[in-house]
């Protein structure tokens, strides 16, 4: 009788083990589903998306947008978040991934020279706050010198996208604006 009980407990133990910890996956599946997990040795970057300047220029803002109440009152479209840097990732890939995963509507324009230009994010579009307004980005505080898809990143980079109301004709996001 004791023997039976012992066997039963052993079986139960094994079953609980299988239940709790073991995922049965192929290598490909494992790779796919764990691609963006942050581990100790993974390279990561930080992304922030803010629209404070638009809120400061509310007087210039597109009336319809203002009335819609779609803009966050604290200026935060995406709070500072850490993302895994995959090989070959540029600012564009990180932004695209973050915006998709957070379901923030984003519209890109593919410009003449193969660059990607961000036209609108989180309902806020270029020209919504006057003729010099639009999205621009910086990496480690350095304003963008080229299109976001041309700027490769390295471990620990700090990307900040912000809405500006005073950008120049071809500045901010190289390849955007103009005709």
């Amino acid at each position: 009788m004791k023997k039976d009980l012992f066997v039963a407990f052993v079986i139960l133990f094994v079953v609980i083990l299988i239940f709790s910890g073991v995922e049965i996956q192929s290598v490909d599946e494992y790779y796919l589903t764990h691609l963006d997990d942050i581990r100790e040795d993974s390279e990561t970057v930080f992304l922030t998306v803010r629209c404070d300047e638009a809120l400061e220029h509310i007087g210039q803002m597109n009336v319809e947008l203002l009335a819609s109440g779609l803009l966050p009152s604290n200026g935060v479209i995406l709070a500072r978040t850490e993302y895994v840097l995959r090989e070959g990732d540029s600012v564009y890939e990180i932004l695209d991934r973050a915006m998709r995963h957070n379901r923030i509507p984003t519209e890109y324009v593919y410009s003449s020279d193969g660059g990607v230009y961000v036209k609108g994010m989180g309902h806020l579009y270029e020209y919504d706050c006057g003729p010099l307004s639009g999205w621009s980005f910086s990496v480690n505080g350095e304003p963008a010198q080229s299109s976001c898809n041309r700027l490769e990143l390295s471990d620990g980079d700090e990307i900040v996208w912000s809405y500006t109301c005073s950008l120049g004709l071809f500045s901010a996001q190289e390849g955007g604006g103009g005709q």
């Binding site: 049965i24 996956q25 490909d28 599946e29 589903t33």
Partner: peptide, 14 residues
């Protein structure tokens, strides 16, 4: 899409 499918298949299998 492939990723979501793999994730759910793993869950289903488990």
């Amino acid at each position: 899409l492939l990723r979501a499918k793999a994730q759910l298949q793993t869950e289903l299998r488990a």
